[in-house]
């Protein structure tokens, strides 16, 4: 189908609504945030308009470097774990009957309706000493006495993977459903066992999808600020936690804004990187 290029102003009217939405809900708040990040903090009141770069200069301490490093590491770990669990799972799911697929997808969608708070407290109960899963292990004779599994890094990781996994599966699903099943069959007629064919045909054929999904989960995990507080110790807190802390409890809006802008820039840089890699591969 051939589409004509828009000519008159009227041809652009369908863009009006999304355009207005984008300005009102994204451009305005984000610009405000960038502006605030250069303001000066006023301990007595809130902040005063100014142009200082002190807020950004405060990053250059080992403490913030450490938090940033930990945040990035945690997000990368969550992304890698989610994709390595979700990819084979979704692949096997697409081989099931339509009914089974629908049931699973509906189940996963319902997990998405849970808020971060509910997920956090559910897992904190599950990992607790008094009512947690270790009681189950004791009953099964696998453990001597129940123990608390939190606050630990493992608990933070588990909670965040649980939160991100449905997104990962839902993003991978369309690509895997559309994958030509004869690719795998061709590999089998050429002497590859199904497992081998999965690793050297299905996975590389969907490399772009996998990279894009990794980035998406990474950015998603970077924004998580409740789970590290509920399930982890202060040293497991991420940059997002600090932003919340500065903005709400310390009333240091300019510094919180500066950190938020920084986080957004990192996310954008990563998305840009993916697009660049994708373009290079397509050019091959």
């Amino acid at each position: 189908m051939r589409r004509e290029a828009p000519k008159s102003f009227a041809d652009y009217t369908p863009l009006l609504f999304p355009g207005v939405m984008l300005v009102v809900f994204f451009v305005v708040p984000f610009s405000t945030m960038i502006a605030v990040s250069f303001f000066k903090r006023n301990p007595a009141g809130f902040y005063t308009p100014d142009f200082v770069i002190d807020n950004y200069a405060r990053f250059l301490t080992t403490f913030f470097a450490g938090v940033l490093g930990f945040s990035l590491m945690l997000a990368v770990l969550v992304a890698v774990c989610c994709v390595s669990i979700a990819f084979p799972f979704t692949y096997l799911l697409t081989k099931r009957s339509r009914r089974v697929q629908t049931l699973w997808l509906v189940g996963l969608l319902s997990v998405l309706s849970l808020s971060e708070v509910i997920i956090g407290f559910a897992w904190s109960t599950l990992f607790s000493q008094t009512a947690g899963i270790t009681n189950l292990f004791v009953a099964l004779g696998l453990m001597d006495k129940p123990v608390a599994l939190l606050p630990t890094f493992g608990a933070v990781l588990a909670g965040m993977i649980y939160q991100a996994l449905p997104y990962t599966i839902l993003v991978l699903y369309p690509a895997l459903v559309r994958l030509d099943p004869t690719l795998l069959e061709a590999a089998r007629t050429l002497g590859a066992s199904p497992v081998k064919a999965f690793f050297n045909v299905v996975t590389p054929a969907l490399r772009n999808t996998i990279v894009a999904t990794l980035i998406m989960v990474f950015v998603f995990a970077l924004g998580s600020y409740l789970l590290p507080q509920i399930l982890g110790r202060p040293r497991h807190w991420t940059l997002s936690v600090l932003i919340t802390d500065q903005a709400i409890y310390q009333s240091n809006m300019p510094f919180a804004a500066a950190m938020a802008v920084f986080l957004v820039l990192i996310s954008l840089a990563l998305v840009g990187l993916t697009l660049l890699v994708g373009r290079r591969e397509n050019a091959l």
């Binding site: 030509d180 004869t182 690719l183 069959e185 061709a186 590999a187 089998r188 007629t189 050429l190 002497g191 590859a192 066992s193 199904p194 045909v201 590389p204 054929a205 490399r207």
Partner: peptide, 20 residues
């Protein structure tokens, strides 16, 4: 199983591996 049968097959969609 298919991978032990020593046969060559050409599919209607050809199924060439796009990444290779």
């Amino acid at each position: 199983p298919t991978h032990k049968r020593n046969l060559g097959m050409v599919f209607q969609s050809l199924a060439l591996f796009p990444h290779l």
